[in-house]
Amino acid sequence: MPSRPSARRAFGMLDAELIDRLREMNLREPIPPVRDRPVIADANGKRGLSGFEEENAWGAYWRIESPVEASIPGLAADSQAEKKKKGPFKGPRNPAKPRAGDAGEGAAPSSDEDLSELSRRWTRDALYVDLETCGFAGSAIFLVGLVRPVDGGLRLTQLLARTYAEEKAVLQALWNIAATCGLLVTFNGKSFDWPCVHDRSTLHHLGRDPRIPGREAGALLGDRLGRNDARPNPRHVDLLHVSRRYWKGTMPNFRLQTLEQRLCGRFRIADIPSSEIPDAYASFVHSNEPGPMRSILHHNALDLITMVQITARLINAP
């Protein structure tokens, strides 16, 4: 004897006063709705963010390209000559010296496979990745920061979702770039960034997770990443793990900013704290004001630069 759910109550039955109450309960400042295609730069291109809109199979997103040097504090554009003398990356003022034998029981740094991969590839086809997300695990990715070697130099690429709706296009762009790289480099990315990229891609039905065995599928991407294309699965070095092995016992902790202070001698001033980034993004989405977004982009660039500098220290690059 089947029994059917009672017919849905029409909207009219939902008490108007109740709606008022819900509204009253939750109402704060009314805000303008999110634009489907946000305009970041104003007509004169003055107030806006640099970069350009790019489109792929899943829609448009914002892309910012620059040489890495442009984002390194203390390396102003007018000191290019000096930079060449010193080499691209500033060494630390008070470098923490790795002690002999510190690099982990049984695995000397030189025989560390991760290190040899790093030194072989970091200027050839490595891809540094750092994400900014809307919050904790499981939340959306809105910015993918990348550093990779292009034309003999390192290029910073930032893929930005200007609204929540652009995440899929951003991920597609990431996979297109990842398909050309031979080594993925992250900081704590084995447990956070990369699973997050996979999870969000799975959520968007973007390619097949290569870690899960299944149908044969080509890794040919181009501009398409159908549900059954396997995502690229490059070798992955997590700098957090390598640093822990290499500088074991010499660091108070292995947070990125601690390493930045100890190894690069750089202290962040007026940097937006990670904890404020989700709210800053939310306010950017609703206001289209580029201010908060600039801080986030800068924060993300500094994280990536620090990762590159840590690499340089690890492989004793000049």
Partner: peptide, 21 residues
């Protein structure tokens, strides 16, 4: 109401979560 009170955001015909939590 949730959109008005900024607990959801409407974009491209969909409702999105605004908080990452």
């Amino acid at each position: 109401i949730l959109v008005e009170s900024r607990q959801l955001a409407q974009a491209a015909g969909r409702y999105y979560a605004t908080s990452g939590q």
